[in-house]
Design a protein around this nucleic acid. Structure first.
Lengths: 239, 239
DNA sequence: GTCAACGCTGAAACAATGCTGAAACGCCGA
DNA sequence: TCGGCGTTTCAGCATTGTTTCAGCGTTGAC
């Protein structure tokens, strides 16, 4: 599968012969934060896939030229991104129901744009979940263990240290970027909602909160201050 | 039971009178790494079972000739592989549940192919885990037993705790994804009808309903809140 | 080298934001 | 009509960004 690039907007490819629908859906997805592209028929879709790839295809069922259905069957073999089929209302949705082969989801047109986007996100999430499923992620440092799936910190004795959401994100940012100076600005990027302007000093406060919890378990000086620069996470990643 | 050969693809046998669905599902399973075969009716299924065996049967409920239901009842007695029943659109899965047929899981058509494959894997996993145990696979946690086939929850004393359909689906989602934070969005995916837009908060309410029933049987804190993130099912799977 | 002013940081207190649980309501299908 | 279920409302409160202040390292002048 064309792997979705981490931390970049998911690329959706809309395939429909009706220009109004095509562009409308593209705009809907674009506004929802997707990287949206459009193709008027199956041939154009294939070209686009070859040249740019995609993380998700929204495919109209009925189209002149090669049918969406046959394209779906063919695509869904290997390596293709997940597919959401759109069927025009009035086409017996029931029949399509039986034919849902290969598609990851389907909707009847006209469909609510928000619902389409929601389903798209769901399909992408599921695809990603199955990719990352076997990953029992845990980051270790100085005897501690940061359990990503549970968002918990365990001290060397295995005792759980409660972390708030912000504390967890900050500590995670540190653990994932160890042994290097991180400016407050970088830490804001990594660990704070960057949807609004937040003062640098908020970082100081969170750092001190995390420090206190680490120190209390006998691990002082793991987060060192670099005066005028920022902070550095100074712990050896444990095995 | 026709034992599953170790380290070879699991053999699934799809039984449906509709050729499109039959072949489509076969392709879905094949793509998912199964060794898929298909049969158009119960008689063909029996022949296939005798000649090749299978590790899992996906059986349509409504079929001409012998009904899937009766075939399921008959099969589930002895040595037969686990069965996933598919009920056509409109049939209510919850109603089927009450019937004492031997299926291991139920899905309502139309179903998401990924969902079906996931359920198939889950059934096979359970079957393997309890290979030597009497039939009646169930998910166990903290002394409780969640019977997938009967959609019932039994407390440590064996008493049945009534669950509504939504409560069952939510609890099942939790039990199948333990020890990790599940966002409300994920839980909506797993446990709610994704036919329309449902607000996040519906999850909270269902969670509180399930919590109340668990707590009343002396199991508090099994579903923990992760503020700002979601919920985590924090129970050790029991033997 | 000494000293003082300055700026940076840590700690604590504070307040606003928004998340969550509980209860109640209403809709809808059986 | 009733149970199930999604929505709404509201109160409580954890979280978190801001503020204030003191300590101290840094820096520049003398």
């Amino acid at each position: 599968m064309a792997l979705m690039t981490e931390n970049s907007p998911p690329r959706v490819l809309i395939v429909d012969d009706d220009a109004d629908i095509r562009n409308g859906l593209a705009e809907v997805f674009a506004r929802a934060g997707f990287d949206a592209a459009a193709a008027a028929d199956v041939a154009a879709m294939e070209r686009r896939l070859d040249s740019h790839g995609a993380d998700l295809i929204v495919l109209d069922l009925m189209m002149p030229g090669e049918d969406g259905l046959s394209a779906c069957k063919r695509l869904s073999g290997r390596g293709a991104p997940p597919i959401i089929m759109l069927s025009a209302l009035g086409d017996d949705a029931d029949r399509i129901v039986g034919l849902e082969i290969g598609a990851d989801d389907y909707l009847a047109k006209p469909c609510n744009p928000r619902e389409l986007v929601a389903r798209a996100r769901a399909v992408l999430r599921r695809a990603r979940d199955t990719e990352n499923a076997p990953k029992g992620e845990a980051l270790r440092f100085a005897g501690f263990r940061l359990d990503i799936a549970r968002r918990e910190l365990h001290d060397p004795d295995g005792v759980v240290i409660p972390l708030s959401g912000g504390e967890f994100r900050l500590l995670r940012a540190f653990v994932e970027h160890p042994q290097r100076v991180l400016t407050r600005e970088q830490l804001l990027d990594y660990a704070f909602n960057n949807d609004s302007e937040v003062f640098d000093r908020a970082v100081d406060v969170q750092v001190s909160r995390v420090r206190r919890k680490l120190e209390r378990r006998g691990a002082p000086d793991i987060i060192r201050t670099i005066r005028g620069e920022g902070y550095i996470f100074d712990a050896k990643p444990s095995p």
